[in-house]
Design a binder for these strands. Structure first.
Lengths: 158, 158
DNA sequence: GGAAACAGTGGGTCGGAACCCACTATAGGG
DNA sequence: CCCTATAGTGGGTTCCGACCCACTGTTTCC
């Protein structure tokens, strides 16, 4: 019944733990890691989820819109959409008005998948935020939302 | 005065923004990235700072202790210490009691460097947490600290 | 009708982080 | 004294995400 985790014997340096920057980096990394793990169980990555969410929330749109919205590289998006398409989670069709564009839409299967992924994400969340009660989680969520809003977006937003 | 950042035209999917997991992943990634940037200007990486902080906070110790404390790979730590030593930020000496061990301590230069790095980290923090006032930052810090404490530590803690 | 801009695709590169193994030197227990 | 465990070093590999270029087809503007 030995722990699966090697686990540091001592505590981390207060000099680091006192920096929100550092905590954010550290916790964010863990959250990201666990989320990625969950997605990997379905053979997916963060971008897949982001694309599905964008399509579900904003409706069918051209790849170029997804590129701008998500800050993903056009080439990479192509690959993501290709995979999602092959698996039946999204559909692609040439835009009749502008035949350069490929309009992408999420299928029913895609929506179902997204729901599952969101559930997994929420599970990760419950794990990570375990020390906080419901009220505190709401406060945290709100603070994070505002921080996120204010962040000058650079590349690779997701 | 055109923005240096390409910047997504539209907003991100609410389905994602509603997940704290996602916000943490995203913000944490940004924080980490900017911090890494700052360190890179001095030719350093996160591990360098972590090691300096650990030495400053807990005093001279063997590499093996740093390995356990920080959850870093022993081999990687060796490289970090080697670099820091070459630059004069830490000193290494064989432990007289147990000559297998290499005791590492931070030098005056190392402390000065650490102070500078902390200042840079705080600058990043001011940037990232700009939307929050002082009180809110304190709340956030406290929530993060508790979340961090509760996180079952896996590998690569820093 | 031709030139220039744009959407998308395919095929890469590059750098970083995590990880791992083989080896030396030392310690400590029987 | 031998055998095993430990500390550290050197030299790798592997994986992934971000990035980039060259190219095709299409539109737009003159």
């Amino acid at each position: 019944m030995t722990s699966e985790t090697p686990a540091p014997s001592g505590a981390l340096p207060p000099a680091l733990l006192g920096l929100s920057t550092f905590l954010l980096a550290r916790i964010g990394r863990t959250a990201r890691g666990r989320l990625t793990e969950q997605l990997a169980e379905r053979g997916l990555r963060l971008w897949d989820m982001a694309v599905l969410a964008a399509l579900a929330d904003f409706g069918p749109q051209a790849q170029r819109d997804l590129v701008r919205r998500l800050g993903i590289d056009p080439s990479d998006l192509g690959k993501v959409v290709e995979q999602l398409g092959a698996a039946g989670y999204v559909e692609r069709s040439r835009d009749a008005r502008d035949r350069r564009r490929v309009s992408v839409s999420v299928t029913a299967d895609g929506r179902a998948l997204l729901a599952e992924l969101e559930a997994r994400a929420r599970a990760v969340q419950d794990e990570v935020l375990a020390p906080l009660d419901a009220g505190e989680r709401r406060v945290l969520q709100e603070l994070l939302r505002r921080v996120d809003e204010g962040m000058g977006e650079r590349r690779g937003s997701v």
